[in-house]
């Protein structure tokens, strides 16, 4: 497992920042005497994704996961920092394709499935003749476990899981080596989710894909990833190997996340949790932004932003009090 960290990175992200201007319109600001307002959706984050591996980003809603996905795929322009893809098989830098959460909204309802999948082929002129395009579309449909005749149908004729397969086929059309998947199974039932996750794992092996995987479901993330980055209010608070992070979470927020997952094998009944609420990203708390919810916070925590430190096991953690070998863990 620890080898994944040493693998050649397919993507390296350094000091990535994204600030959104969420100010009221100018006139309202003048009348109501309100200052401009900004959200630091992504705040100085670093990570690498090992080639052929899977890094997952987890965290509560609004912590900045989707913004990272959109930055990496070029749908947003970074306010600062660097996003560097390694050269792919053909020598040119890798290109990333994105798969979205909602398989209903991301497919054009008026197009036949074959045209949805063919669009990137035609757009990027990846095939010369229309016969070749048709052949490639059929191949892609079979790759994702649909049949060639499904190309004639419209998106509404498919179930949620099948629509997500269509999204995957379209993402694969441009032969990407890197896929950014933003909550790809969050809208699906568990039985359908299993089909889609199995498909994604199979494609990773067969096509040598690298994944940046985004989810709020810790059990899905555990199943898919080699490494996990935990985000809280725009920052990565802990990043490490999957098994290590589950076995020995070092950051109090990671510990809270793991504690609160509803657990089928060891359910927590008749116990009320006080886990606090996520603060507004418009007014993030001072120092360590987790300090109002942190059970072990000290005076230093509200005054000083914790730096990211590397521990002996390859985990990186941003907490003043995290130690290399937690006592009693």
């Amino acid at each position: 497992m620890t080898t994944s960290a040493q693998k050649k990175p397919a993507l390296t992200v350094n000091g990535l920042v994204k600030t959104f201007d969420v100010s009221a319109p100018w006139l309202n600001r003048v009348i109501e005497r309100k200052p401009r307002q900004f959200v630091q959706a992504v705040n100085d984050i670093d990570f690498t994704v090992p080639a052929g591996g899977c890094l997952s980003i987890v965290g509560e809603s609004g912590c900045g996961k989707s913004t990272v996905a959109r930055l990496v795929t070029g749908l947003h322009r970074a306010s600062a920092g660097e996003i560097r893809f390694a050269p792919g098989r053909a020598g040119a830098p890798l290109s990333a394709q994105m798969i979205f959460q909602d398989p209903y909204a991301s497919l054009n309802p008026r197009w036949r499935v074959k045209n949805i999948i063919a669009e990137p082929l035609r757009e990027l002129k990846l095939r010369d003749t229309s016969a070749e395009v048709i052949e490639r579309v059929e191949e892609l449909l079979l790759t994702v476990g649909l049949s060639a005749s499904d190309g004639e149908k419209f998106p509404h004729e498919f179930s949620g899981g099948q629509r997500q397969r269509i999204s995957i086929a379209r993402a694969l059309a441009s032969e990407p080596e890197f896929l950014v998947c933003d909550e790809p199974t969050s809208a699906l039932d568990v039985s359908v989710q299993a089909q889609v996750l199995n498909l994604m794992r199979r494609l990773q092996d067969e096509l040598g894909l690298t994944y940046l995987f985004i989810s709020h479901d810790m059990s899905v993330v555990r199943h898919m990833s080699d490494r996990i980055a935990v985000m809280y209010l725009g920052r990565i608070v802990e990043e490490g190997d999957t098994e290590e992070l589950f076995a020995r979470p070092r950051h109090p927020y990671t510990q809270l996340l793991l504690q609160t997952i509803p657990n089928i094998t060891a359910p927590r009944r008749d116990r009320e949790l006080a886990t606090g609420e996520v603060p507004s990203p418009l007014k993030p708390p001072s120092g360590c932004t987790f300090h109002p919810r942190c059970p072990i916070a000290t005076a230093r925590c509200s005054a000083e932003v914790p730096a990211v430190r590397a521990l002996a096991n390859g985990t990186r953690v941003a907490c003043h009090l995290a130690v290399d070998e937690p006592a009693g863990a």
Binding site: G161, M218, R222, H223, I264
Partner: peptide, 21 residues
Amino acid sequence: LMASIPSLGARVVKLNQIDGS
């Protein structure tokens, strides 16, 4: 259905899946 849920305990290579819909 129960077997298709990714586990928080042991990791498996392939999830159990119910084919079809």
